[in-house]
Nucleic acid binder design. Structure first.
Length: 699
DNA sequence: CTCCTGCGCT
């Protein structure tokens, strides 16, 4: 069976259609060849041919073929075999293998080649250029510059490589690209098309409209106006600087619209939030390549449209376009968003079979993220372990994953490991850490890390960090300390931050503080319904029904609606969606209601007392209980129990936070049904089993 | 032989 026959499982999200059996997952082929077959063939050649294979020329052209086919790992493998065969590399070998290091960002191997170069004494300009670019593309711009300054002969490629190094740098050195370009002109070196394409990459960050226009005038001056590559670079530069009209003007003036410029426009439209126009442009394109499809898939995912993203992926394959690792990363994002473990697993197997995982850190980090977000923290940890090179994002996603699953101590341990390996933490590392402490009830530790971040690591806490700390203190009952933090922080608090405090007020029934907090929230964001809901919850819990009515009237006048609770459960490849309330539009609604009633009776016999304080309306006890019964996660659980064999794990994704009542009900359902129930809510994962929850009541 | 625009991880 060929790889092309593997089909994407037809997981239908937000819809109850049935999966057709022919589309089910088929066994996957074995891994891609790691070794290059040509090597063994070469080593078996007869004595007559030995002379030929001793010649580095044959090896060089083999290496070049690999590089042209994007098989950079294999190219480096060939070099090793070559050395093993006692063949001395020549001045043509090094530019090739060093280029492979640049593409793969293998600085360690690159440095080794640098040593070899010095040992063999190859100092020609090709080797020097390759080294220069290798250091620049691995982020060592200063080393590259040192090499550049020491070169006794420079070609236009040397200048372009150095300019590219600055232009692509993320450390604010983009301006240096322009400085060097001007320096080059002053020395009488004439730029070529490459000079402009690399220079234009610096636009959009430090370099703004003014510089883009200046570069454009230089393009005209040196006669590269009709060069497609340069023109595309200009279009992209204008888009990134916000001169969208100018970009479209350049695009319209082009005789033959190019795929690359179209892709840039699509990306820009998506960035502006205009998905419809992006779609229209995409449909009009005559030639669509993998980047075009990736741009659309990424656009759908950014807008939360998982179904459309998957659909685009199917159409892409039908058009015969081969997905690349970027496609995989986008798909994994969609899986994380939908919380669909089965789909995520499929994407993992599929990308492995296509050789798209390999040692790609970004794909691996996306996998770690997907497994954590889909509730399979063990697989996330397994993938993480296989990562040879870990960047700050890899550590961040793993720490955040452990936090989501309430493994606070493990997250802290990992953080120390990260520091020990010399990786510098960033803002998101601390979001992960603070979340880990929040979800693990580690108040002191959380405060310690919060203080550390600016003092030791020079990272100033942002609103999100403050929200974590306020939540951490608030949950543990230290409401005044939380308030103090807000009052003393150097940045202006937003509605979300105040909401964290309001939630804590609800938890500890501090109605006085809540009243002053809610006023501040309404002043900042009058439309957000959840705060009115929390406030009316506080009043309802104290039987202050008049106040409840006032809040709800105010909420109505503000034209806000409560976001409806919604839970997803995937069974046999179909995602079933349940909203709060008696299910009415699901094919099995009557059976689900009956099953739920039955479950409630059984857990009541095991000590379940409905927490009717949580119900908003002033209604009779019995009705209050019915309101609680039909929270979406309870309905979804009843459906899951009904539709799966005894003992099967149940996984649910919920859009809001799980409520206290559902939380205690789930513990008992897990116990009486002898099932493991895993619920992902807006804030974290809850693993229920045998009457307990993994969150130890911190959430 | 070396520099080549567009799409990616919390």
């Amino acid at each position: 069976m060929g790889i092309a026959e593997i089909l994407l499982p037809r997981i239908i999200l937000y819809n109850s259609s049935v999966l057709s059996s022919s589309d089910r997952r088929k066994p996957l082929p074995t891994k891609v060849l790691q070794k290059c077959p040509q090597i063994s063939a070469d080593s078996k050649v007869s004595a007559r041919n030995v002379e030929v294979s001793k010649n580095p020329y044959t090896w060089n052209s083999n290496i070049r073929t690999r590089i042209e086919n994007n098989q950079h790992e294999e190219a480096l493998g060939l070099y090793l075999s070559m050395v093993k065969e006692n063949i001395t590399p020549d001045e043509f070998t090094f530019p090739l293998v060093i280029k492979a290091c640049s593409v793969l960002k293998k600085i360690k191997e690159g440095k080794q080649f640098h040593t070899h170069v010095l040992k063999y004494g190859f100092h020609d300009v090709f080797v020097q250029n390759a080294l220069l670019y290798m250091y620049a593309s691995c982020g060592f711009v200063e080393i590259a510059r040192k090499l550049f300054d020491e070169m006794n002969e420079r070609t236009i490629v040397s200048w372009n490589s150095m300019i590219a190094g600055y232009a692509k740098s993320t450390s604010g050195l983009e301006l240096e690209a322009v400085v060097l370009y001007v320096c080059m002109l002053n020395r009488g070196v004439c730029p070529d098309a490459f000079s402009f394409t690399v220079l234009l990459r610096a636009c959009g960050s430090v370099l703004a409209v003014k510089e883009a226009i200046q570069i454009h005038s230089n393009v005209i001056k040196f006669g590269f106006e009709s060069n497609t590559l340069v023109n595309n670079g200009l279009i992209d530069a204008y888009l990134k600087c916000g001169l969208v009209d100018a970009a479209f003007l350049l695009y319209d003036r082009t005789n033959e619209p190019d795929t690359v410029s179209c892709n840039a426009l699509i990306t820009s439209l998506i960035r502006q939030g205009d998905l419809d126009s992006a779609e229209t442009l995409f449909r009009k394109m005559e030639v669509r390549n993998v980047v075009s499809w990736n741009a659309m898939i990424s656009g759908y995912v950014q807008n939360g449209l998982c179904n459309e993203a998957l659909d685009a992926f199917r159409r892409m394959k039908l058009e015969g376009i081969k997905p690349n690792s970027i496609t995989i990363v986008c798909l994994l994002s969609a899986c994380s968003l939908a919380g669909s473990l089965s789909l995520g697993k499929w994407v993992h197997l599929y990308s492995d079979s296509q050789g798209l995982v390999g040692s790609n850190q970004i794909v691996k980090s996306a996998l770690v993220n997907m497994y954590s977000k889909c509730g399979d923290i063990k697989s996330a940890q397994q993938v993480f372990k296989t990562m040879v090179k870990k960047d700050v994002v890899s550590w961040d996603v793993m720490i955040e994953g452990l936090a989501l699953h309430g493994k606070g101590e493990e997250a802290l341990e990992l953080f120390h490991e990260m520091l020990a390996e010399g990786v510098k933490p960033d803002e998101l590392t601390f979001i992960g850490l603070l979340n880990a402490c929040r979800h693990g009830g580690l108040v002191e530790e959380g405060l310690k890390q919060f203080r550390r971040m600016s003092v030791e690591f020079g990272i100033e806490p942002n609103l999100e960090h403050y929200t974590c700390v306020v939540d951490l203190l608030g949950r543990s009952g230290q409401l005044n300390d939380a308030l103090k933090i807000i009052e003393e922080m150097p940045i202006a608090p937003d509605a979300v931050l105040w909401s964290a405090l309001l939630g804590a007020c609800r938890m500890h029934n501090d109605v006085l503080l809540a009243e002053s907090v809610v006023d501040r929230i309404i002043a900042l964001d009058p439309k957000c319904s959840s705060n009115y809901v929390i406030m009316s919850n506080i009043y309802a819990a104290r039987n202050q029904w008049e106040e409840v009515t006032t809040v709800r009237r105010k909420m109505k006048s503000m034209d806000t609606e409560k976001e409806p609770g919604c839970s997803l459960i995937e069974i046999g490849g179909v995602v079933n969606e349940f909203f709060a309330g008696v299910p009415s539009d699901h094919p099995c609604c009557k059976e689900v209601s009956d099953k739920l009633e039955e479950l409630m009776i059984r857990i009541k016999a095991n000590g379940y007392i409905p927490d009717t304080d949580l119900v908003l309306r002033n209604i009779q006890q019995e009705e209050k209980e019915r309101d609680l019964y039909f929270h979406s996660e309870k309905v979804a659980v009843a459906f899951g129990i009904m539709k799966t064999p005894p003992g099967t794990q149940i996984r649910i994704v919920k859009n809001l936070r799980i409520c206290k009542d559902c939380h205690s009900a789930m513990k008992l359902i897990a116990k009486v049904e002898k099932r493991e129930i895993i619920i992902r809510d807006r804030s974290r994962f809850h693993h229920f089993s045998d009457g307990q929850c993994s969150c130890r009541n911190f959430w």
